[in-house]
Nucleic acid binder design. Structure first.
Lengths: 341, 341
DNA sequence: ATTAGCACTCTACGCTAATGAGTGCTAACG
DNA sequence: CGTTAGCACTCATTAGCGTAGAGTGCTAAT
């Protein structure tokens, strides 16, 4: 579809624009090493590329800027993946290895290091409990009418809820409930937990415990909640602001509003397996229509756990970010794997 | 120190400036209802107030702006606490009551509602485990060499850590450890937990379990970690940006950098009992030298649990915010109290 | 003690002209 | 026929300049 020279020119324009954030003119392309053509020739090609939709002109007498389609072609066919330097690798490993004793910490640290290394904003989605199974259940009474319900998944994730105890239930009954639930439900995937609870556990519970219907409802809610819990972390928000495309406070504002809305964020970065690049208007959310979002899922045993994403201006260092994400998502998966196995 | 008229004028200027964000001139004060003086008289008083350090002039021919000292006087002597309207009260109660089954959720919701009601940014510090005691300890093995250690405090707060199990320790030993720790340590305040662990628990553990020294170290770390965990939530970041003082992206950036740094944030809002107002340069952190921070602690039984803070421009609606904070901190405390008791 | 009047100061805003980067087109070139 | 030099043209950006307006400080009158 594109001639070799057109590809070369498109590549040069995107590279240049990524560096400079300024519309690139024919002259600067021509002066590059390895380009044996005069500005006039480049201009002709640029006019063609614009007609094909790969480039855009902010106004008549400005240079060209890549369009979404242009970036897309660049990402799909032209981009050279960056090498992750020894130094960077070491920083990643060091940072991820340091006193990691809580699931959430890993993913938070990953977010931090990513935003530091790239100078973009990182959005990470904590481990999903979807597709995981129950490892342990515990009810800890705090006083006569309140208890903490704790759920541990087979991936080591812990969820907890405060629940009220139906009046008239005593300590020994709570212990019985705990025991029965562990006997009947450990190892059951969360997706099937609820039906199991009402079918098998229900009767059993009724045999030993009064008020068991109320109890059942409470437990049902707890388990469901455990299933759907998501944790999003955003890191390096301020990095966005050094980009010239955000010199306008209005743009910053819409972006921050997005960051404040967890559900929207979650939807944005929700898992599509592997590494995904969404460029500019390809993004669903209007606030990031001049941003690009690169996401990578991390998984163990082919079971996708969560997502790591980098948000930057469309004019983003795709090669570098993609290779970095690749490394980190694998490292995170490895780390989880170590615990889990 | 100030004459009645000076107080009245200072009050008027601060009120006006809070509304308009623009230097206020003598004329506009004079035209107010209830002020029976001409602009010239006001001007004379304003000159005096400036000399005394309560007002400042951005440039020679502009109106006056309150200085930090001016705001301080306003807050200490002049401000009228706002009434919290029925409608607002209802929103608060509604929002806080809605499906609150996790400690962190309450405080997060409180942050959200606060930033919504005030249009400023809220910073809240989750319940401290300081001063609380151990309610329950649990070790859940995930596989041969990993387990999740779970700590529940008497306030219903749950902490968890992944720990590695020394090799050669089997299931029954883990159960023993769990049992012993619960027997010996439940009810002990976190501050004394560590010494207790090494003194009493150590020997007991040695009697039943091999590798008990390794175990002891691991448990020690877990308990300490539980003691110091802090959770900060920032909500309504974007609200800051509507304020004209943040039309400059640079200022926004320093602010966001602060928000990204949890330790600095924690230090900033850390508990001083009651309601505190820190105005402009009174704040330690440079990034918020033209901001005011109002904090309130929430506590049960006189035991301070955490902090709720509102950050806004120095030109902040002090009266409204203070009364709102008062209401919410009490509501949150009430909510915690309900569970706890 | 208060106020009207007035000269003075400084910012904000709009206008114009100059600058310069970059284009598109045409005609010449190999 | 592809490539390139030359040139007129476009348009954003910037600096310079003058005016309008808001507000002050001072003085003299009430």
């Amino acid at each position: 579809m594109l001639t070799e020279r057109q590809r070369m020119i498109l590549n040069a324009i995107v590279d240049d624009y990524i560096r400079s954030a300024e519309p690139v003119g024919s002259r600067s392309i021509s002066k590059r090493g390895g380009v044996g053509f005069s500005p006039a020739t480049i201009r002709n090609e640029m006019a063609d590329l614009e007609e094909l939709g790969f480039l855009e002109q902010p106004h008549t007498s400005a240079g060209r800027v890549p369009s979404t389609k242009g970036y897309r072609y660049y990402v799909d066919h032209l981009v050279k993946l960056g090498e992750v330097s020894e130094h960077e690798l070491e920083r990643i490993r060091h940072f991820l290895a340091d006193k990691m004793n809580q699931m959430e910490q890993v993913i938070q640290h990953a977010a931090t290091i990513l935003s530091n290394l790239t100078n973009y904003t990182s959005i990470v989605l904590g481990p999903e409990t979807f597709n995981t199974s129950l490892k342990h259940f515990q009810l800890v009474p705090l006083n006569e009418n309140t208890a903490v319900a704790i759920i541990v998944t087979n991936t080591g994730h812990v969820e907890n809820r405060t629940v009220s105890i139906p009046s008239g239930v005593d300590m020994s009954e709570i212990e019985k409930v705990t025991r029965i639930l562990n006997e009947k439900l450990v190892g059951v995937p969360f997706s099937r937990l609820r039906s199991r609870l009402y079918s098998e556990v229900g009767q059993e519970l009724g045999r030993y415990v009064g008020h068991y219907e109320e109890f059942l409802d409470i437990l049902g809610n707890v388990l469901i909640a455990g299933e759907q819990e998501h944790r999003v972390f955003v890191s390096g928000t301020s990095n966005m602001l050094v980009q010239p495309e955000f010199k306008d406070v209005e743009k910053v504002k819409t972006l921050l509003e997005l960051f404040d809305e967890q559900p929207a964020l979650i939807k944005l970065v929700s898992a599509t397996p592997g590494i995904q690049v969404k460029i500019g208007s390809e993004n669903d959310h209007e606030a990031i229509n001049n941003c690009s979002l690169i996401t990578a899922t991390y998984s163990i045993d082919g079971q996708s756990l969560g997502t790591i994403g980098i948000l930057g201006p469309t004019r983003m260092e795709y090669g570098k970010v993609i290779s970095l994400l690749d490394v980190i998502s694998k490292d995170v998966a490895l780390l989880y794997g170590k615990w889990y196995k």
